[in-house]
Simulated scan of single mutants.
Amino acid sequence: MDLSSEDVFVVLGPVDETLLADILATGASVRDLAEAWAWVNADEALMNEGRRLPAGKVAELVDLLEVDDETP
């Protein structure tokens, strides 16, 4: 199931309209977004658990979230 605006707000909290549109355009699921958010916030811990690096939609979301995280 594709994400809705409400899903994004539940997982990430408030985001700007551009990031919201970019996230929704990925066609990702809530699970994909939650996993991407976990990678952005705890990548070392996830690697230590032996998880594979993100791929596909999760990797796309990680890229979007990391760029937004770097914006002042």
Results as ranks from 00 to 15, higher is better:
residue 5 S to H: 04
residue 48 N to G: 02
residue 21 A to R: 00
residue 33 L to H: 15
residue 57 K to Y: 07
residue 50 G to Y: 13
residue 1 M to W: 05
residue 20 L to R: 00
residue 19 L to W: 00
residue 59 A to R: 15
residue 50 G to C: 10
residue 31 R to E: 05
residue 50 G to M: 08
residue 21 A to C: 01
residue 38 A to S: 07
residue 48 N to W: 09
residue 12 L to E: 11
residue 69 D to E: 11
residue 51 R to Y: 08
residue 38 A to W: 05
residue 4 S to R: 05
residue 35 E to L: 06
residue 72 P to A: 12
residue 36 A to W: 13
residue 22 D to Q: 09
residue 68 D to I: 01
residue 25 A to V: 06
residue 66 E to N: 10
residue 10 V to E: 14
residue 62 V to H: 14
residue 54 P to H: 15
residue 69 D to L: 04
residue 45 A to P: 05
residue 16 D to W: 00
residue 31 R to M: 02
residue 69 D to Y: 13
residue 57 K to E: 05
residue 22 D to K: 10
residue 61 L to I: 09
residue 63 D to Q: 10
residue 50 G to E: 09
residue 20 L to E: 03
residue 62 V to A: 13
residue 55 A to Y: 06
residue 67 V to N: 15
residue 53 L to I: 04
residue 31 R to V: 02
residue 26 T to V: 12
residue 8 V to N: 00
residue 46 L to T: 04
residue 48 N to S: 08
residue 21 A to M: 00
residue 2 D to W: 12
residue 32 D to G: 01
residue 22 D to H: 04
residue 19 L to C: 03
residue 52 R to N: 15
residue 20 L to T: 00
residue 51 R to K: 12
residue 60 E to M: 10
residue 31 R to G: 08
residue 31 R to L: 05
residue 48 N to R: 09
residue 64 L to K: 11
residue 33 L to D: 09
residue 9 F to N: 01
residue 53 L to Q: 14
residue 14 P to W: 11
residue 6 E to P: 01
residue 43 D to N: 13
residue 15 V to K: 01
residue 69 D to F: 13
residue 66 E to Y: 11
residue 70 E to W: 03
residue 2 D to G: 04
residue 41 N to S: 10
residue 63 D to T: 11
residue 61 L to E: 05
residue 16 D to V: 03
residue 29 S to K: 10
residue 64 L to P: 06
residue 39 W to H: 08
residue 32 D to K: 06
residue 54 P to C: 10
residue 41 N to K: 13
residue 52 R to Y: 15
residue 64 L to G: 06
residue 39 W to F: 14
residue 21 A to F: 01
residue 1 M to N: 06
residue 61 L to N: 04
residue 4 S to T: 11
residue 49 E to D: 06
residue 64 L to S: 07
residue 3 L to Y: 10
residue 27 G to Q: 11
residue 21 A to S: 02
residue 48 N to T: 03
residue 33 L to N: 06
residue 37 W to Y: 11
residue 68 D to E: 13
residue 2 D to S: 12
residue 9 F to D: 01
residue 18 T to V: 09
residue 65 L to T: 10
residue 34 A to R: 15
residue 72 P to K: 12
residue 22 D to C: 08
residue 10 V to K: 09
residue 56 G to F: 14
residue 21 A to K: 00
residue 38 A to G: 05
residue 25 A to C: 14
residue 10 V to R: 08
residue 65 L to D: 07
residue 47 M to H: 12
residue 42 A to F: 02
residue 51 R to L: 08
residue 43 D to I: 04
residue 67 V to D: 15
